[in-house]
Design a protein around this nucleic acid. Structure first.
Lengths: 189, 189
DNA sequence: CAAATCGTCTACCATTTGGTAAGTGGCAAC
DNA sequence: GTTGCCACTTACCAAATGGTAGACGATTTG
């Protein structure tokens, strides 16, 4: 049910999704959905909450699996790409949230904030250690985040450069993006 | 009228925008809009067409204003940021289009394709000349595009790192992003 | 067994939506 | 001056939407 709603929110948008549609996709009636989530907004909140928690879990696991420095960056990017293939709607939801704005975005940000802050801290430490080129860690994180999520969610941009997202392309994309980030982040090649 | 519709499509989404709403914002009735554009989809197409052409014009002008190599990249990024400040809905529309998918995205891509191809060509020549690090030009363009548009359109991501897009932040962001791209693209610092 | 709770359904309802039909006033052309 | 076009309006409409009310069977609980 939440999965069906996620998928619908991502590819038709929240406003463009009808409860009847989600209900049909799930095999129940609209009223069953309303029974569980009170309102369409309630459904959205449940979807976002689940997505944010999964995202946090996955990213934290990636960070924990690698040693500080470039390895962690690589682990996170790999994890993001894996997620984009395994559960494409997760990153897509972030896109939709960014259009919905407050208060829905606050719900997601609140869950993700600790991870974000830790990421900024890790980048700053890496800069202090001389692992990374020195600059504003927040902006570096932002640019990297946008590049990664954009690349895996913007199918039209992909089409624009004559590609479409299958597994082979995803691997190539990940490789290229890691090269890109490595060059941008590391002091020396 | 087109401006009001653009703004509405960007911040409420196409499905979330009502003709009555656009009409009210414009000071006419819904039927006047339908008179000029036949249908809601017609309005969307007009909006996208205008946006795509403006974008092409602006970006082509930026490319033409600089000499091949890094200067052109910088000019395009500067132009994109200027556009993000002057007409924020333009880049926002690209986001909405990427969610709408075909056939609306085809309309935009068709207009932008020549510019995209020229950009890829320019990157490849820069690589051949040794100005840029060698790699797949399409993927480099894609990553750069996603980073730039993401940074200027994703206000939630900005909020996530504790910023919000005013002019001062935009300048800092542009500076940081140019540093980022320079490091990623150029062979040597 | 009786009572209550739960998940789901059928039946509605008010509102909003995109779109059609039929005018109306102004203005140019003949 | 009347004819015809143009931008725009008022008056509707059918369909879809989010949401409410109430019934029905199954399961749990005392």
């Amino acid at each position: 049910m939440i999965e069906a709603a996620s998928a619908a929110f991502v590819d038709r948008g929240f406003a463009g999704t009808s409860l009847d549609g989600v209900a049909r996709a799930t095999g129940v009636t609209k009223q069953t959905i309303l029974y569980h989530f009170q309102s369409k907004n309630g459904l959205l909140e449940a979807v976002l909450s689940e997505a944010a928690q999964t995202l946090r879990y996955e990213l934290d696991a990636a960070v924990a699996s690698a040693s500080p420095g470039w390895d962690q960056v690589e682990a996170v990017v790999r994890s993001a790409f894996a997620l984009a293939v395994r559960r494409p709607e997760l990153l897509g939801l972030l896109r939709e949230v960014s259009r919905l704005g407050s208060p829905q975005s606050d719900l997601v940000l609140e869950v993700l904030k600790p991870s974000i802050d830790r990421a900024i801290g890790a980048l700053e430490q890496g800069m202090a250690r001389g692992d990374f080129r020195s600059s504003d860690a927040r902006l570096v994180l932002l640019s990297s985040y946008c590049a990664v999520t954009g690349v895996v969610t913007d199918s039209v941009a992909l089409k624009g450069v004559g590609l479409s997202l299958d597994l082979r392309v995803a691997v190539k994309l990940r490789h290229s993006l890691l090269d890109f980030l490595r060059a941008a982040l590391l002091e020396t090649l």
